[in-house]
């Protein structure tokens, strides 16, 4: 009896085994036809594989036609990648500067109304993005910030701050005060403590928060699309313009793969950094 009970906790049931495989297939499966599509020359219904691959046309084009287009300046992929990087890095740096001090207070001090304050900090996550996007666009048009980098970077702060502050608060909470107190007793100044004790200890958490903020920023579509006014394109908005007709040709498939690439790279380097605690923290408890 007891043995059977432990078994159900340490072994997957046949259904769970099937479910894990099915979910994995649903998640990764669609990427296979996507890759095939980007390499196809002619791929008509109902064939499961292209009837003409690019190789058979290689005398016309040395690299796959779709990729030839994707990698050329005409596709605007480079421009969009550059914009995504610049905006993402700027958002991450500003977000860190804003959230680091706030996270210290939230983790270490208690004050009246702290719970309500934390709830307020989470609000941007639960207010529909369309509402914020259009309202901000009105303000930014009047300020002359619509269609500018500055405007998009400011707008990206709204959905990134809640995650960043949660992740950094979790990091601060996990960090004891002892080392800082020791440094203080030994006569270090506030600035010295911050620079030589606190920051090095916070580093892994800061890196995780920064990576995640960059990720969130690079995935934002609506705010960039509304506030970029078509003047500034990023990878998600570029892909939107390619597929907004509701079809996916070979070059759009190539662009989809390019747009997925930053996320895949970040996933590989950051899996161990992503603090699951930041997601598990509930609202209002």
């Amino acid at each position: 009896m007891a043995r059977k009970a432990t078994n159900t906790f340490t072994h997957l049931s046949p259904f769970q085994r099937f479910y894990l495989v099915a979910v994995a297939a649903l998640i990764v499966g669609p990427f296979l036809p996507l890759i095939i599509q980007s390499l196809a020359f002619r791929w008509a219904w109902p064939n499961l594989l292209p009837t003409v691959w690019w190789m058979e046309q290689r005398e016309r084009s040395p690299i796959p036609l779709a990729w030839d287009y994707v990698l050329s300046p005409y596709s605007r992929v480079y421009e969009a990648t550059f914009n995504t990087m610049v905006i993402g890095i700027a958002v991450t740096v500003i977000c860190l500067a804003i959230c680091l001090p706030a996270a210290r207070v939230l983790a270490r001090e208690s004050f009246r109304g702290k719970n309500s304050f934390e709830f307020f900090l989470s609000l941007p996550l639960i207010v529909p993005e369309a509402a914020i996007g259009i309202a901000l666009l009105m303000i930014f048009i009047n300020l002359g910030l619509a269609g500018s980098y500055v405007g998009i970077i400011i707008a990206h702060l709204i959905p990134t701050i809640p995650y960043m502050v949660r992740m950094l608060t979790a990091v601060y909470q996990g960090l004891g005060r002892e080392f800082e107190e020791q440094a203080m007793i030994l006569g270090a100044s506030r600035w010295q403590i911050l620079r030589m004790v606190t920051l090095p200890m916070l580093m892994p958490g800061v890196v995780a928060g920064a990576l995640f903020t960059f990720l969130v920023s690079s995935n934002i579509f609506l705010l960039t699309f509304f506030l970029g006014q078509g003047k500034i394109i990023t990878l998600p908005t570029l892909l939107f313009s390619k597929i907004s007709g509701g079809t996916l040709d070979a070059s759009a498939a190539g662009i989809t793969l390019i747009v997925s690439l930053p996320g895949i790279i970040l996933l590989i380097i950051s899996e161990r950094f992503i603090k699951e605690e930041a997601f598990g923290k509930g609202f209002g408890n």
Partner: peptide, 17 residues
């Protein structure tokens, strides 16, 4: 975690495909 890391527009492209 793959879908978490990539934009919604990629998901839309996959849905179209």
């Amino acid at each position: 975690k793959l879908p978490l890391m990539i934009p919604y527009t990629v998901g839309i492209a996959l849905a179209v495909l």
